[in-house]
Amino acid sequence: MFDQIGFPLLITLKIAGLSTLIVAITGMVISYILARRDFVGKWLVDILVTLPLVLPPTVTGYLLVVLLGKKGMLGSILYNLTGWTIVFTWQAAVIAAFVVSLPLMVKTTTAAIEAVDREYEYAAFTLGRKELDTALFITLPLAKKGILAGIVLSFARAVGEFGATLMFAGNIPGRTNTMSISIYSAFQAGNSELANMLVIILILMSLLSMAITAKIINNWKI
């Protein structure tokens, strides 16, 4: 029972949780820069970050293998140095989830930061506060609704991630069989009882996370 339901649930929460944490932090940094800075090649950064949103997840997964696989451009260096490859590990699933959910975080958060009136930041500057200080205590708190929306979307995307994970992390029971992948396997094997059970758990999880988010946002005055 644990192998069939418990493990996929825990590994999914672990992968989605960790990837969302990384997505949230890098997403806020990238979004702030995109929203508030002008630099050469800004459009390129924007495109690169957004690309996984429009690419089929299998393509993203394939590109990850090409880049980070045992014989990949970066992966081969890592393999030669340590004798370890990331492919078919839970860490690979985290990277896959990170890549596909980052655009959702960046798009939502950039829009939220752009919507913050720059006058608040100017006011903070005239009060002697540096840009980092202002970003942490004024800009990001004022954009918190959009940031939370980005985090929720990223988490949901990470939980539901299938294509890139399958390509990059595989479907190894007891290692990388996440909920989404387990549902597919159960369905393929004709085990509809297990598939139903996993589907119900996923739906309940989604409802719960949406309810919690709504509750948090309701309690925020600004």
């Binding site: 009136d117 006058e119 608040y120 100017y122 006011a123 903070a124 500057f125 005239t126 009060l127 002697g128 506060r129 540096k130 205590f137 004024i138 708190p141 004022l142 005055k221 600004i222």
Partner: peptide, 27 residues
């Protein structure tokens, strides 16, 4: 700006909406 020692009052006040009056002044 940070080193210019000035007080600036904006047309729309620009009070930080997520801070109370004391925190605004203390900022």
């Amino acid at each position: 700006v940070q080193q210019r020692s000035l007080g600036y009052v904006f047309q729309n006040y620009a009070l930080f909406p997520h801070m109370d009056v004391k925190k605004n002044i203390a900022y």
